[in-house]
Protein backbone atom coordinates (compact mmCIF):
# COMPACT_ATOMS: atom_id res chain seq x y z
CA UNK A 1 0.00 0.00 0.00
CA UNK A 2 1.19 3.46 -0.87
CA UNK A 3 1.66 5.73 2.14
CA UNK A 4 -1.07 8.17 3.12
CA UNK A 5 -0.22 11.85 3.45
CA UNK A 6 -0.09 11.36 7.20
CA UNK A 7 2.29 8.40 6.91
CA UNK A 8 4.57 10.39 4.61
CA UNK A 9 4.64 13.13 7.24
CA UNK A 10 5.32 10.51 9.91
CA UNK A 11 8.24 9.12 7.92
CA UNK A 12 9.73 12.59 7.46
CA UNK A 13 9.29 13.28 11.18
CA UNK A 14 11.71 10.43 11.97
CA UNK A 15 14.46 12.61 10.49
CA UNK A 16 13.86 15.32 13.10
CA UNK A 17 16.53 15.67 15.75
CA UNK A 18 16.44 17.24 19.16
CA UNK A 19 17.18 20.96 18.95
CA UNK A 20 16.45 21.31 15.23
CA UNK A 21 15.14 24.56 13.77
CA UNK A 22 12.81 23.41 10.99
CA UNK A 23 10.96 25.11 8.14
CA UNK A 24 7.93 23.20 6.90
CA UNK A 25 6.38 24.04 3.53
CA UNK A 26 2.70 24.03 2.66
CA UNK A 27 0.77 20.74 2.30
CA UNK A 28 2.21 17.41 3.50
CA UNK A 29 5.26 19.13 5.07
CA UNK A 30 2.93 21.06 7.41
CA UNK A 31 1.63 17.72 8.76
CA UNK A 32 5.13 16.80 9.95
CA UNK A 33 4.55 19.05 12.99
CA UNK A 34 1.93 16.55 14.21
CA UNK A 35 4.47 13.69 14.42
CA UNK A 36 7.44 15.12 16.30
CA UNK A 37 8.90 12.06 18.09
CA UNK A 38 8.41 12.06 21.86
CA UNK A 39 11.29 13.34 23.92
CA UNK A 40 12.71 15.74 21.36
CA UNK A 41 12.20 19.44 20.89
CA UNK A 42 12.09 21.20 17.53
CA UNK A 43 11.30 24.82 16.75
CA UNK A 44 9.33 25.71 13.64
CA UNK A 45 10.39 28.64 11.48
CA UNK A 46 7.80 30.37 9.35
CA UNK A 47 9.44 32.53 6.70
CA UNK A 48 7.14 35.51 7.11
CA UNK A 49 9.09 36.13 10.31
CA UNK A 50 8.30 33.73 13.14
CA UNK A 51 10.59 31.30 14.92
CA UNK A 52 8.64 29.14 17.35
CA UNK A 53 5.35 28.65 15.56
CA UNK A 54 2.62 27.07 17.66
CA UNK A 55 -0.73 25.46 16.82
CA UNK A 56 -3.72 27.22 15.30
CA UNK A 57 -5.34 29.63 17.78
CA UNK A 58 -8.56 29.00 19.62
CA UNK A 59 -11.42 31.31 18.74
CA UNK A 60 -10.42 33.45 21.74
CA UNK A 61 -6.75 33.61 20.71
CA UNK A 62 -7.43 34.51 17.07
CA UNK A 63 -5.29 37.50 16.06
CA UNK A 64 -5.02 38.93 12.53
CA UNK A 65 -1.45 40.06 13.30
CA UNK A 66 -0.33 36.47 13.95
CA UNK A 67 -0.06 34.40 10.78
CA UNK A 68 2.24 31.82 9.18
CA UNK A 69 3.79 31.68 5.71
CA UNK A 70 0.60 30.07 4.40
CA UNK A 71 -1.27 33.16 5.65
CA UNK A 72 -3.11 31.02 8.19
CA UNK A 73 -3.73 32.38 11.68
CA UNK A 74 -1.36 30.69 14.15
CA UNK A 75 0.04 31.10 17.65
CA UNK A 76 3.59 31.50 18.90
CA UNK A 77 5.03 29.12 21.47
CA UNK A 78 6.56 30.35 24.69
CA UNK A 79 10.10 31.41 23.78
CA UNK A 80 9.28 32.33 20.19
CA UNK A 81 10.80 35.29 18.39
CA UNK A 82 9.36 37.50 15.67
CA UNK A 83 11.40 39.46 13.14
CA UNK A 84 11.37 41.11 9.75
CA UNK A 85 11.44 39.42 6.34
CA UNK A 86 15.09 40.31 5.70
CA UNK A 87 16.05 38.80 9.05
CA UNK A 88 13.97 35.71 8.32
CA UNK A 89 15.70 35.09 5.02
CA UNK A 90 19.11 35.84 6.52
CA UNK A 91 18.42 32.80 8.72
CA UNK A 92 17.33 30.77 5.75
CA UNK A 93 19.93 31.84 3.21
CA UNK A 94 22.66 31.85 5.81
CA UNK A 95 22.13 28.16 6.50
CA UNK A 96 20.94 28.55 10.08
CA UNK A 97 17.79 26.46 9.62
CA UNK A 98 18.63 22.80 10.31
CA UNK A 99 15.99 21.14 8.16
CA UNK A 100 13.67 22.25 5.39
CA UNK A 101 10.78 20.08 4.21
CA UNK A 102 8.95 21.03 1.06
CA UNK A 103 6.83 19.63 -1.74
CA UNK A 104 7.80 19.41 -5.41
CA UNK A 105 6.53 18.57 -8.90
CA UNK A 106 9.78 16.91 -9.96
CA UNK A 107 13.20 15.97 -8.59
CA UNK A 108 16.06 14.65 -10.71
CA UNK A 109 19.19 12.55 -10.19
CA UNK A 110 21.35 15.69 -10.00
CA UNK A 111 19.33 16.91 -7.01
CA UNK A 112 17.54 19.59 -9.04
CA UNK A 113 14.02 20.48 -7.97
CA UNK A 114 11.05 21.92 -9.88
CA UNK A 115 8.24 23.04 -7.61
CA UNK A 116 6.79 26.41 -8.50
CA UNK A 117 5.72 26.65 -12.09
CA UNK A 118 4.04 24.67 -14.85
CA UNK A 119 4.38 26.61 -18.13
CA UNK A 120 1.03 27.31 -19.73
CA UNK A 121 -0.72 27.18 -16.38
CA UNK A 122 -1.24 30.15 -14.13
CA UNK A 123 1.97 31.13 -12.41
CA UNK A 124 1.51 32.36 -8.88
CA UNK A 125 5.13 32.65 -7.86
CA UNK A 126 7.84 30.95 -5.88
CA UNK A 127 7.28 32.67 -2.54
CA UNK A 128 10.23 31.67 -0.37
CA UNK A 129 10.91 28.29 -1.97
CA UNK A 130 13.94 29.39 -4.03
CA UNK A 131 15.59 30.95 -0.99
CA UNK A 132 14.84 27.88 1.10
CA UNK A 133 16.42 25.42 -1.32
CA UNK A 134 19.40 27.72 -1.95
CA UNK A 135 20.09 28.17 1.74
CA UNK A 136 19.47 24.80 3.31
CA UNK A 137 21.97 21.99 3.35
CA UNK A 138 19.44 19.57 4.72
CA UNK A 139 16.27 19.38 2.64
CA UNK A 140 13.65 16.65 2.43
CA UNK A 141 11.22 16.69 -0.47
CA UNK A 142 7.84 15.07 0.01
CA UNK A 143 5.71 14.30 -3.03
CA UNK A 144 3.87 11.44 -4.66
CA UNK A 145 6.21 9.13 -6.57
CA UNK A 146 4.24 9.51 -9.80
CA UNK A 147 1.49 11.70 -11.20
CA UNK A 148 -2.15 10.59 -11.30
CA UNK A 149 -1.44 9.43 -14.85
CA UNK A 150 1.41 7.22 -13.67
CA UNK A 151 4.21 9.48 -14.88
CA UNK A 152 7.29 9.39 -12.69
CA UNK A 153 8.26 12.54 -10.81
CA UNK A 154 11.74 11.18 -10.11
CA UNK A 155 13.53 11.98 -13.33
CA UNK A 156 16.86 11.81 -15.09
CA UNK A 157 16.43 15.54 -15.67
CA UNK A 158 13.63 17.86 -14.54
CA UNK A 159 11.42 19.05 -17.39
CA UNK A 160 9.76 21.98 -15.58
CA UNK A 161 11.46 25.29 -14.74
CA UNK A 162 13.73 24.77 -11.74
CA UNK A 163 13.34 26.11 -8.24
CA UNK A 164 16.93 25.19 -7.39
CA UNK A 165 19.91 23.21 -8.67
CA UNK A 166 21.86 20.37 -7.04
CA UNK A 167 20.24 20.89 -3.65
CA UNK A 168 18.02 17.88 -2.93
CA UNK A 169 19.54 14.90 -1.15
CA UNK A 170 16.50 13.12 0.27
CA UNK A 171 13.00 12.39 -0.98
CA UNK A 172 10.05 10.78 0.80
CA UNK A 173 7.35 9.65 -1.62
CA UNK A 174 4.21 7.63 -1.06
CA UNK A 175 6.18 4.55 -2.21
CA UNK A 176 9.70 4.98 -0.90
CA UNK A 177 12.43 6.82 0.93
CA UNK A 178 15.27 7.66 -1.43
CA UNK A 179 18.57 9.47 -1.29
CA UNK A 180 20.08 11.46 -4.13
CA UNK A 181 23.85 11.11 -4.53
CA UNK A 182 26.46 10.75 -7.26
CA UNK A 183 23.95 11.53 -9.97
CA UNK A 184 21.57 8.70 -9.02
CA UNK A 185 18.65 7.86 -6.79
CA UNK A 186 19.36 5.31 -4.06
CA UNK A 187 16.41 3.29 -2.81
CA UNK A 188 16.67 3.16 1.00
CA UNK A 189 13.23 2.07 2.19
CA UNK A 190 9.93 1.03 0.67
CA UNK A 191 6.38 1.59 1.81
CA UNK A 192 4.72 -1.42 3.48
CA UNK A 193 3.52 -3.87 0.85
CA UNK A 194 5.08 -1.97 -2.06
CA UNK A 195 7.48 -4.07 -4.11
CA UNK A 196 10.87 -2.97 -5.34
CA UNK A 197 9.61 -3.69 -8.87
CA UNK A 198 6.76 -1.19 -8.44
CA UNK A 199 9.23 1.46 -7.36
CA UNK A 200 11.66 0.67 -10.19
CA UNK A 201 8.83 0.88 -12.72
CA UNK A 202 7.75 4.31 -11.48
CA UNK A 203 11.24 5.81 -11.18
CA UNK A 204 12.40 7.33 -14.46
CA UNK A 205 15.81 8.51 -13.26
CA UNK A 206 18.66 6.03 -12.64
CA UNK A 207 17.91 4.12 -9.45
CA UNK A 208 20.31 2.07 -7.40
CA UNK A 209 18.59 -0.82 -5.61
CA UNK A 210 20.62 -2.33 -2.78
CA UNK A 211 20.34 -6.03 -2.01
CA UNK A 212 17.97 -5.43 0.84
CA UNK A 213 15.43 -2.64 0.93
CA UNK A 214 13.75 -2.56 4.31
CA UNK A 215 10.04 -2.00 4.57
CA UNK A 216 8.89 1.02 6.59
CA UNK A 217 6.91 0.27 9.71
CA UNK A 218 4.22 2.45 11.27
Amino acid sequence: MALSREQMAQRVARELQDGFYVNLGIGIPTLVANYVPPGIEVMLQSENGLLGMGPFPTEAELDPDMINAGKQTVTAISGASIFSSAESFAMIRGGHVDLTVLGAFEVDVAGNIASYMVPGKLVKGMGGAMDLVAGADNIIVTMTHASKHGESKLLERCTLPLTGVACIKRVVTDLAYLEVADGRFWLRERAPGVSVDDIVRLTAGELVVPETVPEMTF
Binding site: E47, A86, S88, F89, R93, G125, G127, G128, A129, M130
Partner: peptide, 13 residues
Protein backbone atom coordinates in the same frame (compact mmCIF):
# COMPACT_ATOMS: atom_id res chain seq x y z
CA UNK B 1 8.31 40.40 -12.05
CA UNK B 2 8.33 37.30 -9.89
CA UNK B 3 11.06 37.68 -7.30
CA UNK B 4 11.99 35.17 -4.59
CA UNK B 5 10.73 36.32 -1.22
CA UNK B 6 14.14 36.56 0.44
CA UNK B 7 15.61 38.33 -2.57
CA UNK B 8 12.71 40.79 -2.45
CA UNK B 9 13.35 41.54 1.22
CA UNK B 10 17.07 41.91 0.58
CA UNK B 11 16.45 44.22 -2.40
CA UNK B 12 14.60 46.54 -0.04
CA UNK B 13 17.12 46.19 2.77
Amino acid sequence: ELTPQGTLAEKMR
